[in-house]
Every structure is written in structure tokens, then in C-alpha cells.
């Protein structure tokens, strides 16, 4: 089993691992065997930070899972296939796929789209966005980011791309803009950095 990365979906969290004050909706989600989503947060060895996802936006519960409890892991990259769909977010996925496939970087859907494709549970609605992760182990120029963003912005719904760098994640939209510093989400929290690929800056 590969090491879980943010946005991966994990199956196998036992009900008994949830704290006593867990809300009813989250107990139900876990009892039904639905997956949890890996969060970007530091954890003790042998554990991974995960989130339980409910139906509404405010139904999100952060918890931790033992690596040993993972029965199945699905990464966003495994969820790229997409059948014709009435949902704009899934149509956007179909329109973005050829563009992203030619950029030479690994990518895949996250958020509601990833969750629905992985579980078959309908969480999307007409106003759903498409969230994507794009793995950028090496620096992507801001000009290249803007070029990519301009193409993706022609999709049938809003597309939010997180660039995953070795140091954390930055929004493609922000990296494509002109802000001197951009928000990097790292396992140690969020910080403003001028270079999202500079690991030293993130270790502060």
C-alpha cells in the first residue's frame, strides 16, 4: 500500500476509532462503509489525518486513522475516467481531461467529483465546482500556470486546481496571478511564500 497523500480516499476506518462526541451524520457515513478523505495535517507515525464527508458543506469532520486500518486506497489519478453526465462539474472534467493529459503532469479529480466517481454516491449538484489536483514535483512557471488556467476557465463550470509541490499545495489560480506571495498549504499549516517549491521556506 502506498503512503496516503492529501485527497486520497481511504476505506476501512472502524467505527470504534471515532471519538465519543462524533456527530450522528459522521457515524452514519462511516457505518455505511464510505471512504474518508486524507487531509493535509501532521500526524504521529503510523497515523494519517482524514476527514469524514457528509452531505452538506458544513458536514466535515476531521479525525485520524491508523495506517494499519486502511483496506483500500484510491488516489485522484485513478478517477479520471468519466461517462457522459448531466452535471456541469463532470462535463468540465471531460473537457479538462485532454488538456491536462497533454501537460505531462499527473492529475485527477478531488472534492465532490472525486468522491462521487469513487463511491457512486450522488453528492454533486448543478452549482458544484470541479476540484482537481495537479502534481508539480518541479517548478511550473507563472506564465505556464496562466496559460493552463486560461484554457481551464473555458469549462462548463468553475475549475479549482491545486498544484501539489514537494512542499505543499498552492492554487493554480493564485500562482497564475501577480501576488508577490502566495498561500502554500503544508502539513504544518498554511503560510505565505514567494516560491511554493522552495522547501526551506516551508520548514519555518
Amino acid at each position: 500500500m502506498s503512503t496516503p497523500r492529501p485527497h486520497d480516499l481511504l476505506w476501512g476506518l472502524p467505527l470504534s476509532a471515532l471519538p465519543d462526541d462524533t456527530p450522528q451524520w459522521a457515524l452514519q457515513v462511516v457505518a455505511c462503509g464510505q471512504p474518508v478523505v486524507v487531509r493535509r495535517a501532521a500526524c504521529a507515525d503510523g497515523w494519517v489525518a482524514v476527514g469524514v464527508r457528509g452531505q452538506s458543506r458544513d458536514q466535515r469532520l476531521g479525525t485520524q486513522m491508523r495506517l494499519g486500518d486502511i483496506q483500500r486506497l484510491q488516489s485522484p489519478e485513478a478517477l479520471r475516467g468519466c461517462a457522459p453526465s448531466p452535471w456541469p462539474a463532470l462535463q468540465a472534467l471531460a473537457s479538462a481531461a485532454p488538456v491536462l493529459d497533454t501537460c505531462g503532469l499527473a492529475w485527477g479529480p478531488t472534492g465532490g467529483v472525486g468522491y462521487q466517481l469513487a463511491t457512486g454516491i450522488n453528492v454533486l449538484h448543478l452549482a458544484s465546482d470541479l476540484d482537481l489536483v495537479l502534481r508539480a514535483p518541479h517548478p511550473l512557471t507563472r506564465a505556464k500556470a496562466l496559460e493552463l488556467l486560461d484554457i481551464l476557465d473555458c469549462a462548463p463550470c468553475r475549475i479549482d486546481v491545486q498544484l501539489e509541490t514537494p512542499a505543499g499545495a498552492v492554487a493554480l489560480r493564485e500562482w497564475a496571478g501577480c501576488a508577490r506571495r502566495v498561500l502554500l498549504k503544508s502539513p504544518l499549516g498554511a503560510r505565505l511564500v514567494s516560491d511554493p517549491w522552495a522547501a526551506l521556506e516551508c520548514a519555518a
Binding site: 472534492g111 465546482d129 468553475r158 479549482d160 492554487a171 489560480r173 493564485e174 498561500l183 498549504k185
Partner: peptide, 9 residues
Amino acid sequence: VVGCVSSGD
């Protein structure tokens, strides 16, 4: 104007 129209931001 700073920030980003994006989930979690």
C-alpha cells in the same frame, strides 16, 4: 485585493 476564490481560501 488578496486571496483566491477557491475551496478552503
